[in-house]
């Protein structure tokens, strides 16, 4: 085929396939890749289910999670109570459904705060450079040195809750400690990501055009540096849920009468051998939720990674 013929037929065929106006951005490419992955649909479905549980537990059960039937304490699963009853005679199925709210709330809010704080500091450090970068990076190092769990235990035992502390305040306390100790990893990631994007010629071209720093960050740096942060945040969400359960299990996170998976697991410890179902169900839900978020993060990372294309 001749050169002219090749070039001539190439254009119309492209135009016929996609009318002018349609285009593939990197995001839409990632979405098309994501759509074909079953692991994405499974994790997204699970997450939606858990979110629904957190928002409207009444959709899943009519039983009150605080209705104790003491004489049926430690009842094994039956047609009446699918998951059985715990020491107090509460319906485990209802407790597990209602427990989702605390975990999801802690996970989502902690992720939101760490991402906002971490990304903001990371952008400032990476873009400004110089002594601003040094200052932020050293502060990040200081906070990074504190182990998440140890710091959490310290914080929660210093600012202890009592019976009168409201549910919301306790949740916010856990969120606060996670946000306080979780932002450094996001800051580091964002900073390195910004440093990678900044020397690109398109950023230089914008500078040459006279664009303001704010415009350069908003238009050029942020959209190109955000992908790894989104991925890590999604994975972190699962980790935060697990940490909340750990703190509750240790008795310093959420405490009864608050309902959460961690609290349920902690309570199930006493009758582990005689009534293992008390541990099984909340633990299973916890694992599923953590797994779902980590799997989602994995799938999103694969989709955004240009090397896989």
């Amino acid at each position: 085929m001749t050169n002219a013929a090749i070039s001539a037929t190439a254009d119309p065929s492209l135009d016929a396939g996609e009318p002018a106006g349609e285009a593939h951005s990197l995001t839409s490419d990632a979405w098309r890749l994501l759509r074909r992955r079953p692991i994405f649909w499974v994790s997204a479905g699970l997450i939606l289910l858990f979110l629904l549980m957190a928002i409207a537990p009444g959709l899943f059960t009519n039983t009150s999670p605080t209705a104790a039937v003491l004489k049926e304490s430690r009842a094994t699963p039956s047609t009446e109570n699918w998951f059985g009853r715990d020491v107090q005679g509460y319906d485990i199925y209802a407790r597990t459904i209602y427990g989702a709210r605390a975990s999801i709330m802690v996970g989502v809010l902690a992720t939101l705060f760490t991402t906002l704080l971490g990304a903001l500091l990371g952008i400032v450090a990476g873009f400004a450079g110089g002594w601003v970068d040094t200052l932020i990076s050293r502060i990040t190092d200081v906070f990074f040195a504190i182990p998440l769990l140890l710091g959490g235990i310290l914080f929660m035992s210093t600012f202890q809750s009592d019976v009168n502390t409201s549910y919301f305040v306790i949740v916010m306390k856990v969120v606060l400690v996670l946000a306080l100790l979780g932002w450094p990893s996001i800051t580091r990631l964002m900073r390195s990501s910004v440093l990678q994007v900044k020397p690109n010629d398109y950023v230089q071209a914008a500078r040459a055009l006279g664009a303001s720093p704010w415009r350069i960050i908003r238009q050029h740096i942020l959209p190109n540096a955000m992908a790894p942060v989104i991925v890590v945040s999604t994975i972190n969400l699962g980790v935060y849920i697990a940490v909340e359960a750990t703190l509750s299990y240790l008795g310093i996170g959420l405490t009864p009468p608050a309902i959460s998976w961690g609290v349920a697991i902690s309570a199930a410890q006493s009758g582990l051998r005689s009534a293992p179902h008390m541990l099984l169900f909340p633990a299973m839900f916890l694992s599923l939720a953590v797994l779902a978020f980590i799997m989602l993060g994995d799938a999103v990372r694969d989709a955004f990674d240009p090397k896989t294309r």
């Binding site: 037929t9 190439a10 254009d11």
Partner: peptide, 25 residues
């Protein structure tokens, strides 16, 4: 190149890879 004029002459199917060549119209 005016794509329409040449399409009439040669309507062979092409792939997106030919786009590279079309730069050198």
């Amino acid at each position: 190149v005016d794509p329409g004029a040449l399409l009439e002459r040669d309507g062979a199917a092409t792939t997106a890879a030919d786009d590279v060549v079309s730069d050198g119209t």
